[in-house]
């Protein structure tokens, strides 16, 4: 029904650590809401230290898939293993940094207080929390606004704070749902360079996007459409496979021929 391109590990990135299981391992995962199938039979493996992008139109099931991997939602069928553990697992959540599509922040609290709150959720001890707080704030360029109540933040600032919260406890796996929406180009570049730096240090990153040039910077991307993973591979592979010169074109050719 669909063509799966290179559904195994990408050889392009070559970053997968030999040790242990892949960071994310999905087997025949499905999810439906009110009888309507949102995800169908998704198989996907993401290696440790990989920067993986999920690309797809809104409503295609990206966020649902991400929530399943983060262990917030439960699949109806199939098996999910993350960092060598069966999902859902409470202990696993300590190793995951999650950033939802909507900015889930406490408007009455300042940026710093939001970070402190989530730091406590991960049981970061005082000295480490203070140090990580500074680091996370400076990564997203919010150091000078740390004391402001979040209710007065712009949309972009909230997005950045959400990202800072996801980075706070230095998780092994970062799951970011549309991390750069509403962020201006200059800051987007700086956020991307921090993401790349995190990957260099071995953090596995799974993100969703519909910005094509962001997809181009991922080690591998997965194209998702109407709940089905239609293609998985490095940007170069996908372009070659579809004979397209841009990811955008490849996306249309690989995903669109279904109907």
């Amino acid at each position: 029904m669909t063509r799966i391109v290179n559904s195994g590990m990408g050889d392009g990135g070559g970053r997968m650590s030999d040790a242990g299981e892949p960071a994310i391992d999905l087997e025949r995962v499905g999810r439906s809401f009110d009888g309507r199938s949102i995800l169908k039979d998704v198989n996907l493996r993401i290696g440790r230290g990989e920067l993986f992008g999920l690309l797809g139109p809104s409503g295609s099931g990206k966020s649902t898939l991400i929530k399943l991997i983060a262990g917030i939602d439960k699949p109806e069928g199939g098996r999910i293993r993350v960092l060598g553990r069966q999902v859902p697992s409470l202990a696993l959540l300590s190793n995951i940094g999650y950033m939802a599509q909507s900015d889930a922040l406490y408007g009455e609290l300042s940026a710093k207080e939001n970070l402190q709150f989530f730091g406590a959720m991960f049981k970061l001890p005082g000295a480490r929390l203070a140090e990580r707080l500074e680091a996370a704030l400076s990564t997203v360029g919010l150091s000078s606004d740390a004391g402001k109540p979040v209710a007065r933040f712009s949309g972009g600032m909230k997005r950045r704070l959400s990202l800072a919260i996801a980075l706070l406890h230095e998780p092994e796996l970062l799951i970011l749902d549309e991390p750069t929406v509403g962020i201006d180009p200059v800051l987007r570049v700086s956020i991307w360079s921090s993401l790349l730096a995190l990957r260099e240090r071995g953090t596995t990153i799974l993100l969703t996007t519909h910005v094509m040039d962001e997809a181009d910077r991922c080690d591998r991307i997965g194209l998702i459409r109407e709940g089905t993973l239609t293609a998985v591979g490095s940007p170069a592979e996908l372009k070659a496979e579809s004979g397209a010169s841009t990811i955008e074109e490849a996306f249309i050719r690989l995903g669109g021929e279904k109907r």
Binding site: L90, L93, I96, Y98, A100, A104, M121, F122
Partner: peptide
Amino acid sequence: TTGTMERLLATPIR
């Protein structure tokens, strides 16, 4: 409704 519950439950809080 604001999603903070989901965000909170994405942390290892019981």
